[in-house]
Design a protein around this nucleic acid. Structure first.
Lengths: 215, 215
DNA sequence: CATGAAATGAGAGTAGCTCTCAAAAGATGG
DNA sequence: CCATCTTTTGAGAGCTACTCTCATTTCATG
């Protein structure tokens, strides 16, 4: 088993956050990224459906079992990228008395921008797959509703309502439903629009309904 | 290559609606219902995941192949029930100059009432499975977004906008997202609330945001 | 009743995903 | 450096949803 990556012996006295990962942790990270990279490449070459777990395992130089140890489903390899905590952090970074709608506008725009800046190719691939592959879209919606549950808590706090009330839940999920559709729209139109601008139009519709300017 | 709906030469001089079905058609309907009934019973006995296609086939007295000929996926056995055309018909039954929000309120309430009256047990089982089984929920969301595409056309007509515009699509999907959440809420709370009342509260939130009354 | 068309059953095959178990590799203490 | 304990891995068997093919049965029709 050749170790091709130079071992960065980060042995500088580490600040509490990174308690000196240890070889095991570092290898896990590498494996995870190898699987993702392999999937990314194969999907670009052959398409999503034509890419099997066995192929991914082979290219990532791990066993198929290992792939499933790192990702619960095939869709997750493409989608997972702990964005939920980031969004929550953004949300909590806003003053509590700000109007909920304004907060969401900021959070969504900023979250999207961060996600895109970090890896534009990946962001495009994801929305592309969301458009093309039903299974990926479904998985995305599922993880969206998980995010929704967390948003409910935050929004409940801010609006002084029960996070489990129908009102908060409906508000949250309709928001996320609209955002989902925005992402799909962006993907369907070849990522030509400025996503931030789309988000603004989306939030206008969510706030004011279909009243003002039109198509 | 037998595709979706086999065109059976309904050649009896027939009044367009019920052309005297013919034995073949009657058998097909019976098989379809047998499969659904078997699934319904088995799921109630054992739960959704524990119920396999083979069991369903056995109880319905057909071969497993036949089950897949009638339903594309296991989830569809539980979910499918051409409600889309009904909703569309309801929608078109409303005067074109009615406010979109009012139209939707009527359509959704009436659609839900019809679906529930027709088979209350089935309606409850469905929402219950939506809550419990991720795969069913996913499938439901998919069919919801198909409905969304159709609603976009209708809403586009009514609001004088391009049905493919971001605005119409976002409006439609956020509406459906809210409705979806309402159904989940209803199911999670043991179907104790009056669904129509929940729908009203949902549409209030969708129209006015989180502003007025609270939990 | 003979002929054509459609529905069915049987069976093989694929792929995602789970589970188990033994081998390999990192961590740890002497 | 070695022994031991723990975590990670690989190999492989197994399950199930789902697809495809082909021969057989069943209905429709002249």
């Amino acid at each position: 088993m050749p170790d091709n990556e130079p071992m960065t012996a980060a042995r500088t006295s580490s600040p509490a956050d990174h308690p000196q990962p240890g070889l095991r942790e570092r290898k896990k990270t590498k494996t995870r990224e190898a699987i993702r990279a392999a999937t990314y490449a194969l999907v670009k070459e052959q398409g999503y459906d034509a890419t099997t777990i066995d192929q991914i395992a082979e290219r990532a130089e791990v066993s198929p079992s290992t792939v499933f140890r790192y990702f619960p489903t095939k869709e997750d390899i493409v989608l997972t990228d702990e964005q939920d905590p980031i969004l929550l952090a953004l949300l909590r970074s806003r003053p509590a008395r700000e109007a909920v709608a304004d907060t969401m506008r900021y959070v969504m725009r900023e979250g999207a921008r961060m996600g895109f800046d970090e890896d534009p190719d990946m962001a495009r691939l994801r929305t592309h797959l969301m458009v093309q592959v039903p299974a990926v879209r479904s998985r995305m919606m599922e993880s969206m509703s998980v995010l929704g549950r967390m948003l409910c808590v935050a929004i409940g706090e801010r609006s002084g309502r029960d996070p489990d009330s129908l009102e908060v839940r409906v508000y949250t999920m309709s928001l996320l439903g609209g955002l989902m559709e925005t992402a799909l729209y962006w993907g369907e139109h070849g990522h030509e629009d400025d996503f931030g601008a789309l988000l603004d139009r989306t939030l206008d519709v969510l706030e004011h309904g279909l009243s003002k300017e039109n198509t």
